[in-house]
C-alpha cells in the first residue's frame, strides 16, 4: 500500500482516488466488524489485542542481535516497530472523525433549536469552519492567496487571517486560561492552609518553609545562621531542601512504584483479555 502511494505523485488525481478508496475500505472493514455477532467479535478482539501486545513484549524480551546482521540495532522484530505503531495511529485517526462528528452534531442541534447558550454553539461552529478553511489554505494553497475585499483592493492574504485566528485567537485564549490558574491557586491554597487539623497545620508549615527556601527573603531571614555545623540545618534553604529531597521525594517514589505496578497489572489484564467481562458483559 505504501509503495502504491509512493509511486503516484501527490498532484495526480489517482492519488486522491487511491486515498479515498483506502479510507472507504477501512470504513468497510470497521462496519463489517460492527456487524459481527458479539460471540464472534469477542474472541476476534481478544486475538487482535493479544497479537498486538505480543509484538511489543517479544520485541522487548528477544535479545538484541537475534536475526539481524551485526551492527544493526535491536532484534529481527525491531525494524517493524514503526509500522506496528502506525497501525494504532491509523486506527486512531478514524476515531477523530467520530469526535468531530459528535462535537459538530451536538452544537448544530443546540444552535438550530436555539437552546440555552446557543450563541456559544454558533460561535464554535463559525470558528470551526473558519479555522478549517484557513488552516487548509495555509497548508496546501501557499501563504499568499489574496482574500478579495468588498471595498475593492485588498492586500490581506490567507496567511494573515490564519495568523490572526491562530496567534491572536486560539493562542491568546489558551494563555488566558493558563493565567487563570494563578487565581485558582490562591483560592485553593486558602482552603488547604486553613488550620483545621494536625495535617493542615503540617501542610501549612512545610509549604511556608519550602516557599521561603526558594526565595531570597528566606535566605535573608535566616542569613544570620552559620552555613556549616548543626545550626546550618535551620536556614530556610536547607530545611526546604531537606523537605523536598528527604521527605517529598521518597513519598513520590512510593506513589510511582504503586502506579507503575497498577499500569503493569492493568496492561496484563487487557493484553490477556482477563478483564473482558468488564467491557462486554459481566463475568
Amino acid at each position: 500500500m505504501r509503495t502504491l502511494f509512493h509511486s503516484i505523485p501527490h498532484t495526480h488525481p489517482l492519488y486522491y482516488v487511491a486515498l479515498l478508496a483506502t479510507v472507504a475500505a477501512g470504513i468497510g472493514i470497521l462496519a463489517l466488524l460492527q456487524a459481527l455477532p458479539t460471540r464472534l467479535r469477542r474472541p476476534l478482539i481478544a486475538l487482535v489485542t493479544f497479537l498486538g501486545g505480543l509484538y511489543y513484549a517479544a520485541e522487548f524480551f528477544i535479545p538484541t542481535g537475534w536475526g539481524v546482521h551485526k551492527g544493526v540495532d535491536g532484534n529481527f522484530l525491531s525494524p517493524y516497530f514503526d509500522k506496528v505503531a502506525n497501525i494504532s495511529s491509523v486506527l486512531g485517526s478514524f476515531s477523530i472523525g467520530l469526535g468531530v462528528f459528535s462535537l459538530i452534531g451536538m452544537h448544530l442541534r443546540i444552535a438550530s433549536r436555539r437552546r440555552e447558550s446557543w450563541g456559544f454553539s454558533l460561535m464554535l461552529l463559525i470558528s470551526f469552519v473558519a479555522m478549517t478553511i484557513f488552516t487548509l489554505l495555509n497548508e496546501y494553497a501557499g501563504k499568499s492567496v489574496v482574500i478579495p475585499s468588498v471595498a475593492g483592493h485588498s492586500s490581506i492574504t490567507n496567511h494573515d487571517i490564519y495568523v490572526v485566528l491562530f496567534n491572536g485567537g486560539l493562542a491568546s485564549l489558551d494563555s488566558a486560561m493558563f493565567a487563570l490558574i494563578g487565581f485558582f491557586i490562591i483560592s485553593a491554597s486558602y482552603r488547604a492552609f486553613r488550620i483545621r487539623s494536625v495535617e493542615a497545620t503540617l501542610l501549612m508549615a512545610s509549604a511556608i518553609i519550602v516557599m521561603l527556601g526558594q526565595v531570597t527573603l528566606g535566605s535573608w531571614l535566616t542569613g544570620g545562621l552559620p552555613s556549616h555545623g548543626p545550626l546550618a540545618f535551620f536556614r530556610f534553604e536547607n530545611m526546604s531542601e531537606y523537605i523536598l529531597v528527604h521527605l517529598n521525594a521518597p513519598a513520590q517514589r512510593a506513589v510511582t512504584f504503586g502506579l507503575a505496578l497498577g499500569v503493569l497489572a492493568t496492561s496484563l489484564r487487557l493484553w490477556l483479555s482477563l478483564e473482558r467481562g468488564l467491557y462486554f458483559d459481566q463475568e
Partner: peptide, 28 residues
C-alpha cells in the same frame, strides 16, 4: 497512587481484579 487502580476491584468485587490487587501488593 495505586488506589486508582484498585478502585474497579473494590467496586466490582470481581475475582480477577481482586486477585490482581493482591498480586500488586505481593509485587510491592
Amino acid at each position: 497512587g495505586d488506589e486508582f487502580y484498585a478502585a474497579s476491584a473494590y467496586l466490582s468485587k470481581n475475582p480477577t481484579l481482586l486477585g490482581s490487587i493482591v498480586g500488586q501488593d505481593y509485587a510491592k
